[in-house]
Design a protein around this nucleic acid. Structure first.
Lengths: 151, 151
DNA sequence: GTCCATGCAAACTGTTTGCACGCGC
DNA sequence: GCGCGTGCAAACAGTTTGCATGGAC
């Protein structure tokens, strides 16, 4: 589960310039943080990691950058817990998530069937699908019933 | 696509009493509204519909009631657009949603494959799944490309 | 030098909570 | 009448925005 993604500085730079955006220190930084972070950090986490390297960066910039990168398709947004967004660099193969309601652990999995479901729906309804999210929640192997153990 | 559900006054009343909750006018009202409303209203919509019948009901009560009914399994919560929750009375068969990014139309569909995906994941990961959400977004038949027509 | 991007603080949205009163039981 | 449920307003979390300054090009 390594982070591939097309996010090296040069590509990002030319991508931004091509779409009429400037290549700033902050944009690079947010992307770096996202690439180097395991899992699915939320905006606040990304912010504090970025701030560790550039104490001047602001939360607003992080949000603005995340929105930009998301629109560009370089990163993806997910509602994992309930309340707020999590981010990850765009992967080549679509995948989905399970979240443990107790320990918040996230398990990623692939499910090609989802693409098929979408395809059928498109045909039947004449729609066009741009995004698919499958999300399970429940209890992971450590948290199901045996709660009392690790208390 | 009729609203079945086990939400007639008598059943709700005894359900609430059984779980140590009181049967109030407001709780009945919220449930009524939810049953009589097509689609997937959000809290604000439910509030204004309820308010039309009882001008004294408060938004806080609506939220508290929705939370209660959701925990009880009588209704379900969904993130359809992006920003806020939508609600619907619990259906007997699991179903999922497509949302049009332009006109916000929601299409419901069934997909038994999802249950299967969940089952496999449970076996492989030793987890326990309590909830499943599959959500597509994109453009409905009216909104894909032909935007200019209905301008 | 131009203009987009940033930092800051204030605004905003959806939802939750503290508290005194009111009503189901 | 006891105690949960309510209404109100204030609090809250996550995110967005207006504005003056700063930096990419």
């Amino acid at each position: 589960m390594s982070k591939e993604g097309t996010t090296d500085p040069l590509q990002v730079r030319s991508f931004l310039r091509a779409s009429g955006h400037r290549f700033t220190h902050q944009r690079q930084l947010v992307l770096d943080v996202l690439q180097e972070t395991q899992g699915h950090p939320d905006a606040e986490t990304i912010f504090s990691l970025a701030k560790a390297r550039d104490p001047k960066i602001s939360l607003a910039t992080v949000y603005r950058t995340l929105a930009l990168l998301n629109e560009a398709g370089l990163i993806n947004k997910h509602r994992l817990g309930e309340d707020h967004e999590h981010f990850e660099t765009a992967q080549s193969t679509p995948h989905y998530h399970f979240t443990c309601l107790k320990c918040e652990r996230v398990i990623e999995f692939e499910a090609p069937q989802v693409t098929q479901i979408g395809r059928e729906l498109c045909e039947r309804e004449g729609i066009q699908i741009t995004e698919a999210h499958l999300h399970f929640s429940g209890y992971c192997s450590n948290c199901r019933e045996g709660d009392s153990f690790d208390k």
